[in-house]
Design a protein around this nucleic acid. Structure first.
Lengths: 145, 145
DNA sequence: GCCGTTACTCTCTTTTTGGTGCGTATAACA
DNA sequence: TGTTATACGCACCAAAAAGAGAGTAACGGC
């Protein structure tokens, strides 16, 4: 949550402009498949969470990052970071020292994705209570029936 | 993809306003945990895809929905729809006829989430090529090393 | 010469996820 | 009388994801 404000107004503005410019319907089903695929990768819990803390803190070392991403295991941290690096979302800088030192930070591409996710975080924060209420209601209904 | 334009300008505008109004940092760690949790639920592949087609088509019956959500199995469709219903994202209307007829549509809450995800879809469509390029580059580098 | 530090990797086990196929109710229809 | 249509629930199995824990390299400090 706290990372939201880190995304520049320009980035958000860009998103808005694009939202306006998007044509009524999308064309190529091939592309749609690819986009869905990409969405599947990127809309991953850990990816989103890492994106958030890196967006907020700027540059972090491996261990610190692991501490800040609540509940992530070392394995998942490494794995997700590799994936993100491959996709061009984070930059990994290795300092050849002992003990090892590796720094991670968002690339511009990663930052832009962070900005895009901005709205989802806001939504989650805003509608948390409503979702909770809906759940309670649903569960009660299920009981009586 | 194609559902983007279905979200009203007002919904998008609301998201913008909130983006602006959000305080620099978020407060309660308890709430942050809940938000992260909610993100985990909502940032699910099938949820997003269902959200998209329902956002685009409005109201759909079970079977038709299954056809439109590329690649989903019956089981996952039922499961995801139940989850979304519980969270108050979709409304389920049962017509007591034979053969059975059940309609699904987004609630206002679901529609607002769709609007929030809008930016992510746009991002994916826009940056698809860049991600692909990054991957090729990464894989080549890995080979030579 | 042993310890500590850091960023991992590797292996093993457990958990979760997802697919498949079968069953069911009921009325209209042929 | 038998078939079809619809929206599932259920049981079983395979595959994938994730967690736990041990191991490693390499050097500086004690």
């Amino acid at each position: 949550m706290s990372g939201i404000s880190r995304f520049t107004p320009e980035q958000i503005a860009t998103a808005k402009r694009h939202a306006k410019a998007t044509p009524p319907d999308d064309l190529d089903p091939r592309i749609e498949a690819l986009v869905n695929d990409l969405i599947g990768r990127v809309a991953d819990k850990w990816t989103m969470l890492i994106l958030e803390v890196l967006g907020e803190k700027g540059t972090l070392r491996f261990t610190r990052l692991g501490e800040l991403v609540e509940g992530i295991s070392q394995k998942m941290l490494t794995q997700t970071l590799r994936q993100m690096e491959r996709d061009g979302l984070v930059a990994r800088t290795v300092y050849p020292v002992v003990p090892p030192k590796v720094e991670y930070q968002l690339t511009p591409l990663g930052a832009s994705l962070g900005a895009a996710f901005c709205g989802v975080w806001i939504w989650a924060a805003e509608n948390l209570k409503q979702v909770e209420r809906a759940r309670v209601q649903f569960d009660e209904k299920a009981k009586t029936v």
